[in-house]
Write a protein that binds this DNA or RNA. Sequence first.
DNA 1: GTTTATGCAAATTCTTTGCAATACT
DNA 2: AGTATTGCAAAGAATTTGCATAAAC
Lengths: 137, 137
Amino acid sequence: MQSPIAILQSHKLRITDCRLEIIQEFLDKNIALSHSDLEETLKQQFDRVTIYRSLKTFLDKDLIHKVLDDSGATKYALCSHGETVHDHSHEHVHFKCETCGETTCLEDITLPQVKLPAGFEKKEMSLLVQGVCEKCH
Amino acid sequence: MQSPIAILQSHKLRITDCRLEIIQEFLDKNIALSHSDLEETLKQQFDRVTIYRSLKTFLDKDLIHKVLDDSGATKYALCSHGETVHDHSHEHVHFKCETCGETTCLEDITLPQVKLPAGFEKKEMSLLVQGVCEKCH
DNA sequence: GTTTATGCAAATTCTTTGCAATACT
DNA sequence: AGTATTGCAAAGAATTTGCATAAAC
């Protein structure tokens, strides 16, 4: 299905060890990851800066997106697990477990229309639900 | 209505200049503020650390809450502007303007019920809408 | 008078930048 | 070969901690 190499190629990015491992980690874990999460878990040891720059590049190329988090940590997740890259789901729904701290994407949930006050233009919506996940019950 | 002194007293907190000014700033601006926002705008010059600790104390006492932000900055807003301190506090709806960067609370909007997958327990929900506010149009 | 908050110094963590060396296409 | 990425050093934010002084109750 989705291989790290294919993902990089489809975003016209050069294939490097660091990038491959980061993407692999996102695919494996399937939860939102922060820079320090990656720094700790990547098998190979990469420079902190390299990981920062990889994340920035991925953000710029819409390969990952930021996931809201209340802890102050900046977390990221892969965009559109499926194939539709252009579809640009500007709606993000995530669940963060207060016990284990893991943030997962709730794929199936669609956000209702929100009617904003006059003069406000909506471009993007993110819903973060916090509670306890099934693993921690 | 809501005076900084009354707010501190009702939360059983000592009344100090720094705390009063921080609360006054939240009341005046009525937008989510970060530590550095406060550091820049408070009339009196307080130590960075004092502001950090005031915010932490306010968080602990549920006088303020964190407001989600994609920029990495940790922002805060007063809890329950009105008097109703009951259940509504567990739903936050905010609008962040991509142009001016200001985050405002959308009081009137109520979040729809979200049905989580089995095993997930919901405790809190935060919706962040991003776009352009009326001032920036 | 006791308790709590403040200011200062300093330590940590988080993130960015410049530059030469290296790897990718 | 030419361009982009990496690693290293170092700078700059953001946040936390310890301790003596000062302020609040």
